[in-house]
Structure formats: C-alpha cells, structure tokens
Design a protein around this nucleic acid. Sequence first.
DNA 1: GTCGGGCGATTTTTT
DNA 2: ATCGCCCGAC
Length: 746
Amino acid sequence: MISLLKDLNPAQREAVVNTEGPFLILAGAGSGKTRVITYRIAYLIDACGVKPEQIVAITFTNKAADEMKSRVQRLLGKRNVNPWISTFHSLCVHILRSRIGELGLTYNRNFAIYDEQDQLRLVKECLRELNLDEKLFSPRSILSRISRLKNSLASLEELPSPADDYRSQVVEQVFQLYQRRLLELNALDFDDLILRAVELFNRSASAREHYQELYRYCLVDEFQDTNRPQYLLIRHLAGKRKNLCVVGDEDQSIYRWRGADLGNILDFQKDFPRATLIKLEQNYRSTQNILKAAGAVVKHNIHRIGKTLWTENLAGEKVLFYQSLDSIEEASFVLAQIVSLGSLYKTHQIALLYRTNAQSRLFEEVLARQGIPYIIVGGMRFYERKEVKDILAYLSFLINPRDEISLKRIINVPPRGIGEKTIGKLEERAAQEKLSLWEVIAKRREGLSLTTKGETALERFVKLIKDLRQKAAALSASSLIKLVMDASGYLTYLKGEGDERAADRIENLMELINSAREYEEATGEGSVTSFLSRTSLTSDEDSYQEGRGVVLMTLHCAKGLEFPVVFLVGLEEGLFPHIRSMGSEEELEEERRLCYVGMTRAAQLLFLSYAIRRSAYGGRPRTSEPSRFLTEIPPELLNILERGKVFNPQKEPSVQPTEAYSSESIKEFFARHNIPFPTSSGEGAPNGKRPYRLGEEVYHPKFGKGVIIDIEGEGEETKLTVSFLRVGRKKLIARYAQLKKVNDSF
DNA sequence: GTCGGGCGATTTTTT
DNA sequence: ATCGCCCGAC
Ligand SMILES: Nc1ncnc2c1ncn2[C@@H]1O[C@H](COP(=O)(O)OP(=O)(O)OP(=O)(O)O)[C@@H](O)[C@H]1O
C-alpha cells in the first residue's frame, strides 16, 4: 500500500489517503482523475480494511467500468476482490431488481427495460391513442422531449410545471400517458431506471438505509456529465456518512444534450459544504504539442471557468493534419498511415475517432481489405439487430406477460396470419374491457368476428406461448433462446428466405445463443431476466477485448480512454461541429468540448483529417469547409501533410517539419499492395498552360494553402473555388489570383 | 385480410 | 441500410 502511494503526486495522494468525507476533484484531461478513483478504491481495501462490497464506484460507460475493474484488480494483485463498479444504469437495475416492490406501485422484479426502439413504439402507440398525428408530432422528437423533461425532474412523483405553448402541452400529455403505460407494461425506460431508483430511496426508508449501510464509500467518475436524477441518487447513497468522492472536468462535459447538468458541481458544494476541493494540474498523458493544441481549441469557449494544465512530457510531434479531396482518400490516408506506423505501434495502440457512427463504414472496409485487425466499439449494436431483438422480445414477453410492446413485436413474427386488422380488434376489446392484450388473446377472443384463419393462428400462438412459458421457468437463457427460435418457427422462416442476408441473420442468432452461454458461464447466472438486463445495458457483445486491433469509435465513446496514436477524422463544418449542433452557442461549445476530449485522448501522435467532399448515405457528394476547430489550433502547432504522403515519425520533425514525411507516397503504397487508388476527376482549361485540376493543392500569398474544390469556365475565364485551410472557401479568378501549385504528388 | 415488393424519406452523440 | 407506406397478388 505504501507502494501504491508512490505512483501519485501530492495532490492525488491527498485525495486518496483522506478516505472519509466528501471530496470534489476538478481537473483537466489526463491529470489522473481516474487514477485517483482506482487508487482510492485499492487504498480503501488494502490500507483501511474496507470490505470490497462496501465500495461502489460509478462510471459513465460500460467500457470505463470494465477498464476500472481491471485497473483495480491489477493494483490489488491476483486477489479476487469485487467492489461494485458499474454504470449508473447497471447499479439501478441491480437495486431495482431486488427492491422495486417497495415503490408501492404495480412494478415487479421481472420488469422489462425498454431501449429506444421500444420507446418509440410506445410513443407511437400513445400518439395514436391520443389521436395525434405522427406527421405533425414526430415520435422521435416527442420522445427526446419526454426524455429531457424526465431528466430535468427531481422525481417522477413531481409533475412538470404546466407548459404554455401547444407543442409542450402535447409533449406533457404524451408524457403522462407514456409513463402510465410503462407502469401497466411493467417496463422501465433508461431514464426510469435512475428516476425509479431515486423514487425508491425517497419512499422506502428501509431500502435507503440498506444501501447506505452497504455502500459506505461512494465514488463517481465523469461527474460533470451527471444529470439531475443521477446526482440525487448519489446524494442518497452518500447518506449520512458522506464518504463521497466525485471527479470531473467541466471542459469534458459532452452529454448536456441528454440532460447532464454542470449545476451538479455547484450543488455538490452547497449540499456538502465541508467538501474538500482538489485540483490536479499536471497532465501525464499527452505531449506538450497535443496538450497545447487541445487547450487552444477549448479556450475558444466563452462559457468556461478555465484552468491550468501543464505537462513535463516532451514537446513531441506537432499535430498532424491531412486534407483530402474526399472521404475515400481520407480513408486511404488513414490506412496508409497506420501501415507505415506499423513498425512503431501495435494496432491496438491506435484509435480512430469520428463524430458519427456512420463514418466508420469506409474505414472498416479499407482496414478489412488490407487485413489490419480492428474492432468497432458501439455503433450498430448486436443486441439491437432486428433478428436478435425479435428473439429477445419473445424472451421478454415470456418473462413479463405485461410487456405488450414485445408481444406486438412478435405476435406476427414470423408471419403467421395475425395481421393488422385482427390485432386492431383485439386491442379494441382490451380497451373496452380494461384487460391486457394478452388476456384478450388468451381468454376473451370470442365474438370478435375474426376470420377462421386469424382464429386458428391465434389459437396456435396462444398454445405456443403457454407452452414456452411453462418450459421457460426451468431453462437457462441460452436454452430458452434456442427453444424459442425453433418452436416459434423463426429459424425455419429465415432458412426459407434463403438469401445471404438471411444467412447473416441466422449466424447472428447463433451468436446470440453463444453470448448467452458465455454470460452464464462467466457469471454463473442462469436466469433469463438477468441475461435480458445485460442485453439492455451493454451495447457490445464481448467484442471489446483489448489488444485486438485498431479501435474505431465515436468521440463520445472515447471519453476517459487513452491511446498512443489517435486519428480524429471528418473535421468538417457540418459534420464536426455537426450541423444539428450548430443551432446555438451552447451546442457549439459542447461540440468544441467534444473536440477537446478527442484530441486529449492522444498520448504521442495526433492526426487530424478532413475531406472536402463526402457523400452521405447514397446521396450526391457534398463539399464542405474545414472545421472551425482546425482554424482554432495555432498554425505553429500544426504539421500539414502533403496530399499523397504519409508522416514518418522516425525522422526528426521538429527541426525541419517539411522534410518529416516519408518519401513513400500513398499511391506507391497502394500500387504495392495492388489496391486500386481512388482517383479524382480531372477537369480544367485545355489551352496552353497546364490546367488546374480538381483536388489540386495550391498556395495563395494571402490565404495560404488550399485545395481546389470547383472549377468553372475555361482558359482566361477560369474561376476556381478554393478551400483554404485557414480562411475557408474562396472563389478566385485563375488569371488574377497569384496561385502557386504546391506539388503534384499523385 | 394478409403479405411482399417497390418507393421515398430519413439517421448525432449513449445508457 | 432500414422503416413506414401504398398497391397489387393471393
Ligand atoms: N501521478 C502520476 N504519475 C504518473 N502517471 C500518472 C499519474 N497520474 C496519472 N498518470 C497517468 O496519466 C494518464 C491519465 O490518467 P487518468 O486517465 O487517470 O486521467 P484522467 O484525469 O481521468 O483523464 P481524462 O479526464 O482525460 O479521462 C494515465 O495514463 C495515468 O496512468
């Protein structure tokens, strides 16, 4: 334990050895906040004799939780020690599965957890019931407003203050019905998990005292991104002991869009007036250049407290910047650069970060083609795939007969002749007689003038469900999944489709069985409910194993992680900052913080790239200007790579930056590996002098370096649109503009 | 009444 | 790529 403390600086040590009472640690990126949490846990167990199960640590993502678990494990050696380390949501599910009865509502422990798909179905159902037109009130936006409303609430017992405009009134109306339905369906959405846990602690002294007694030490990472209900939960857990340690960085607050509230930091200081405030100012992660560049970007935020952050690390390379003509070239550059870094870095030391999940596709393709191992974190989630969701919906409905959303999802999947009309009649009766849909289906279908076909189909469906339900009790999740797939005819149905798409789906279902089996083996937990919890709470199949390859993920996912090499791609206005976040200064500042988070993930090398043209899903390519964040980095911190060249870190870059690249061009690289290189369409003036080409790099005495993105007219009349790195897009007349061609590397 | 094909609109970020 | 919607086939 003495050796533990050697790895800490004095400020960190203070935060670790003072184990009693409230602590607030505010500090910049890479200053060792997470290290404080992990060491504090280890110290509590090792030096203070605290029982591991008396400690609860909360992180923001499952990845972060896993990471923290293994770090703690490592600090404590081989001893098998299990403090509770999880996300807010997992913790709440854990609490609610054993105590939800004490809410005094009609919930029971087999409650379903609704993901966004389920939520949308429910919102649509509510809209229909309220005779509101989906066209006028998009379910998506209603849902997001409901979520915002809920996350601003102290608890679900509290009614929102009445709104004055019509739309807000509609939202509140839908919200009320939506919550009532969730209760009827014995289901909770993600927000409810927190809110109902808070409500449980408000209402049940016994539950509250139980957990306060159990969790004597409470630690929270990424505190800046907690929302109101999460803060209230923490406050409950801290109880009278107030052994609460929270760490955060307001510059890394990137979840305000889902209700994260910096006010929590102020409230913490109000609610725990004797809290010790600790600031950490030394960054241990990044090179000076990376840190300076990231700091320069985030300084452009006006609504910011500001803080000191310095490092003893080397200056390192400048931030490397590559400007490509289109997204394909960007992917090619990244691929070539990763290959050329191959001698210095292992693939798993490299991360590829982007703003939106959709951007991963191209990179996946080039990496796969080249045989470079990679893993994708998040994105198209396994448990959200249609076929997987379908089977999980069967499970959910078997376990929780009130789960009508799942029932309606699977009642005619595979198609068994129970169509819209039939379901309509059943629902009508359910509403009239105040029965659940399933009760009507199972017991009260007479006299509904159903077709013979519908009637027999229902008869068989009822038999199927009753049969499955009877067997379910004795089966593990994996066996039940297998049984459901066979008995429901789902597998046969997919096999009948016969195309490769269906083959993929079958494979995914086999993988589902597998993941259930692995879960059972890893946890010794056979219950279907607990497997269903897991599928709702964790996004990835256990695909995220360290050391498996280049890590591809969104910037949001990367929070809290660190990599020797980071590629931050798609730095274009409209993409990053994202067009939908450019509406207000607040949103823009959040995008900027996201950029700061991304840049500060890098320890040694940071590559930024940008594509002039990019085609969105199927549509025509759009041209865009470089992200404003690029222009916010002081030029002297940037090393602008020439098109077609990769950076070669073996040469000494800080002396002569322009000579720092390898002479192997990307083109040669592709030729060597026999990959067709994406070409840009050549256009330009035919007469006399060498014409300008689209995508060509030029230099303007006033505007600096830029790339030609459009050419109009011919000869003397040629007009060029040039995207300049520093000043953005300009239209120039070729004859007058004193443009110099920079080079012709392709 | 049900089902499947074709068509158009639509996707930020996550638990 | 996927979902909702519309239309024609059974
Ligand atoms: N006192 C220290 N001595 C040496 N290395 C340290 C020290 N404190 C932290 N580090 C290292 O610095 C890096 C960043 O630490 P950590 O992830 O805990 O920072 P953080 O503040 O949580 O970062 P962020 O907010 O950016 O996620 C890690 O690699 C960690 O091992």
